[in-house]
Each structure stands twice: as C-alpha cells, then as structure tokens.
Nucleic acid binder design. Structure first.
Lengths: 128, 128
DNA sequence: CTTTCATTTAACCAACATGTTAAATGAAAC
DNA sequence: GTTTCATTTAACATGTTGGTTAAATGAAAG
C-alpha cells in the first residue's frame, strides 16, 4: 500500500478503477456484495477483497442483516484527501495565477541567499 | 499501479508518503534529485525512481541543465484528482447535509420500484 | 584525456496487490 | 436438520512496488 498512514491508505484505495467504480455505485445507494459484483467483470471474492481495502481506508462502513452485508460510503477520508490536494490548488487554479507568480518570486528571492552559500545550481524557473 | 488510466496513476503516485513529501518540497521550489534526496531516509536511486513514477503520472516535469535534472510540480493531474473527489463532497460537507438527505430520499424512492421487482433485500439506510 | 559529479540503469530481493477456483462459514428457507 | 444462498477465507499464480548496492552514462572540471 506504499505507506500505512491513513492518507496513503485512502489514495491507495482510490488508485484502483474497480474500487472507484464501487464508490460511484455506493454514492447512489448502499449495496450488497452481490449487487456490487453484478456490473463488474470480476468474481465476487475479488469484490469482497476490494471492499475490505475500502473498509481499511475507512471509505466504507459495513452492516450485516441476515445473510447480507451492506456497504455504505463514508465521506470523511475523502475530505482528508481533498484537503491534502487542495494545498496545491494554486498550481492549477488560474484565478490564483497572479498570487502564484508573486509567491514564486518571493520564495525564489528567499532561497537566493541559501543557494549562494552551497551553490546547488538548481535549474529553477527553467522552461521545459 | 492497479489501473493504467491517468487517474489511477495519479492516485497511485499520491499513495506513497515519500512521493507526497517530494511534492511538498517541489511546491516550494524546483529541485534537483540530490536536493530532494538530502532530507529523505532513502538512497538516490530510490528517489530517482519515485520521480519517474511522479513523471509518469504527469505530476512533475523534468528539465536538464548540464549534469543537473530539475523537477517541477505540475498541478493539472491534481486538479483531475480533486475534481473526482469533489463529486463526493456531499458525503462530508455539512453545509450540504440537507441537500444530501433530500437527494438520498429521492434516490431511494426512485430505486424502490426496481427493488420490488427482484427483491435484493439491501440493508439500505441502516445504522451501523 | 582523466577525473569528478549528478543521475540513471541493472540486478536482485522481499513484500504486496489482484485475480482465479475451491472450500468454509453462517444465516435463511424448506 | 438439510439445503440453499450470500459472503468470506484459503491456496495459488502472477505482476508490481520499493528498497538495496554496483555499474553505466554523460556532462563539467582539472
């Protein structure tokens, strides 16, 4: 899973298209394993294990009602993931372009001193 | 990587704490492999491969300037990831609680007909 | 040219992920 | 109580990940 921390578990869980499809389904309604398996091209044991991964990441909770096990989407971990990504919004949000440019300039200046000291020749602000 | 699609590559790349640390660093300034390796507890070849993963996910671009290879954060894939997660905002954003409840009710009603037909006994709206 | 420096590639390894089919579990239905 | 149904666990195969050290590459410096 790469890391064992919560965020790693969540991103890792989201990295699989089958699991994302399951979450899409669960966003519409709670569902049993059989229901979740139906539209998928894999076996039920495989789905069962995907659900276990989602559960470990706390992306779903599970209920039991007789022979059926229901899965329900839990949003909290998604919020954590969204919060993490959001710190990089200035790298894609055009409305922040000006601010981004300004911050970059300030940071470049701040680093200038350090750089002069140990001369790491970083290709900073170089075009690709 | 689980899937080979773009989103899977991005989430998979983000699933590793070392790679997230690298992105944190790159959010402040472009950096060489040596600079990125310095604060990390792993070897330079290991970092080099992490960078390759990030590059495959298009989360960074790379420049070359003499013997140095610079890495630069690219935000676009993060926006894609953020957009995907954002579709689930109603599952954690309390300001959408009312709407969420309403949508859930509507959807439950819509499904009711189908459910009656093949009786899948879903533990819908069940407490955990 | 030879050496040095930054980085990548190669070869290897242990751990994990994802799928399969077959067997086990556990509650429901008969 | 035996069978049936939903689900999980076991056992297995295969590919990927993430780390290592040692060798290769390629430009800079002497």
């Amino acid at each position: 899973m790469a890391g064992t921390d919560q965020l790693s578990a969540v991103f890792s869980a989201l990295a699989d298209p089958t699991r994302r499809a399951i979450l899409v389904e669960l966003a519409e309604h709670d569902a049993t394993v059989t229901e979740l398996t139906a539209p998928l091209p894999i076996s039920m044991p495989a789905v069962s294990r995907h659900l276990k991964v989602l559960e470990r990441a706390a992306l779903i909770s599970r209920t039991r009602s007789g022979k059926w096990r229901g899965s329900r989407l839990q949003g909290a971990p998604l919020r954590d993931a969204a919060d993490w990504i959001d710190r990089y919004r200035r790298f894609w949000d055009s409305s922040l372009t000006r601010l981004d440019a300004h911050l970059a300039a300030v940071q470049a200046a701040e680093r200038a001193t350090d750089r002069m000291a140990n001369d790491p020749k970083v290709p900073d602000n170089q075009e690709l």
